[in-house]
């Protein structure tokens, strides 16, 4: 056994090495048990969604499903666009200009994930104090650009990755 004078011994080294190998081995064994809960291959393989915009009238908000979540496609009126652009950034809890949230040349189309950034409820369209969305769960108000204006939500409604396939259709994802 190690004594005070003998310092470290081969046995100390063996103890530590054994414990280290044991810890690594345990971690390696536990990882599959944890990782099995992450999204599986079939969930990851969910195809992107293509949406035809022609039936969506001006002033209408349409909800489509993408990756199990609702996505709002809002065909905004001129007034709604102006409201969104006239808002000074200083008034926003999560400052972001409206131009960054839409595709250039398609200013009337706002595409956002319809999940409240607070705790995940689906906000209601054309409601709330800012003409955008209102979340009935905990009272977050979003404006016509889907930006958070009032309430407990910390961030703007997320803009998903999407692109215009043509002038009248988009692909989300």
């Amino acid at each position: 056994m190690a004594t005070a004078t003998a310092g470290t011994t081969r046995r100390d080294f063996l103890y530590i090495a054994t414990a280290a190998v044991g810890a690594v081995g345990t971690a390696a064994a536990v990882w599959p048990l944890i990782h099995q809960m992450n999204p599986d291959a079939s969930v990851l393989a969910l195809a992107s969604t293509e949406v035809d915009l022609t039936p969506i009238a001006e002033g209408q908000i349409v909800t489509v499903k993408w990756r199990g979540k609702p996505v709002f496609i809002s065909h905004r009126t001129k007034k709604e666009i102006e409201e969104a652009r006239a808002t000074p950034l200083a008034q926003l809890p999560d400052p972001q200009p409206d131009q960054e949230r839409v595709k250039e040349g398609h200013d009337q189309w706002l595409v956002v994930v319809g999940v409240c950034t607070h705790l995940g409820c689906v906000p209601l369209g054309h409601q709330g104090d800012y003409d955008g969305w209102f979340c009935p769960c905990h009272g977050s108000h979003y404006d016509t650009s889907g930006r958070i204006r009032q309430g407990p939500a910390p961030a703007n409604l997320e803009v998903p990755t999407y692109e215009f396939v043509s002038d009248t259709s988009i692909r989300i994802g």
Partner: peptide, 27 residues
Amino acid sequence: ATVITNLFSAIPLVGDAIVTWLWGGYS
């Protein structure tokens, strides 16, 4: 289920990864 699991998304940095892990998907 949505609201309560989303509580974990409040955790800085790893919150969203934890929620995805809890869900086993994106919702």
